[in-house]
């Protein structure tokens, strides 16, 4: 029988995958993809908690997470296009203008 902990462990594993992506990637677009993975893993955890406790609050939070992710993508991609037009690259090492 699949229980709540199954879904939570799956969500934790997906979150760790996204975390590895955020740490390892230097390309800004790939960083965005990794962020989407982390948001989706949180959504799975919310939906599972909502199902196993018979409470709709988890699904509400998942909706708002989806709304936040959609607006993040809209603004973020606009910024990425501006950055690419200005610098011609999306690599974080090339974009770093402050030497520290």
């Amino acid at each position: 029988m699949i229980g709540l902990s199954h879904y939570l462990i799956l969500s934790g594993l997906l979150f760790a995958i996204g975390f590895v992506g955020v740490i390892r990637r230097r390309n800004l677009l790939m960083l965005f993809f990794a962020t989407e993975i982390m948001l989706n893993s949180a959504n799975i955890a919310f939906a599972a908690a909502s199902y196993y406790y018979h409470d709709l609050t988890g699904q509400m939070f998942a909706f708002f997470i989806i709304a936040v992710a959609a607006s993040e993508v809209a603004v973020g991609l606009g910024l990425l296009i501006v950055l690419y037009k200005k610098f011609g690259t999306l690599d974080l090492d090339d974009l770093a203008s402050m030497k520290g």
Partner: peptide
Amino acid sequence: EKTTNDALVFFLGGMVALMLVIIFA
């Protein structure tokens, strides 16, 4: 991409995964 120190990244990611699994289990 210049990937600096892959071993450290995967160690950290594995640790996060292990920690989350222990917490959720």
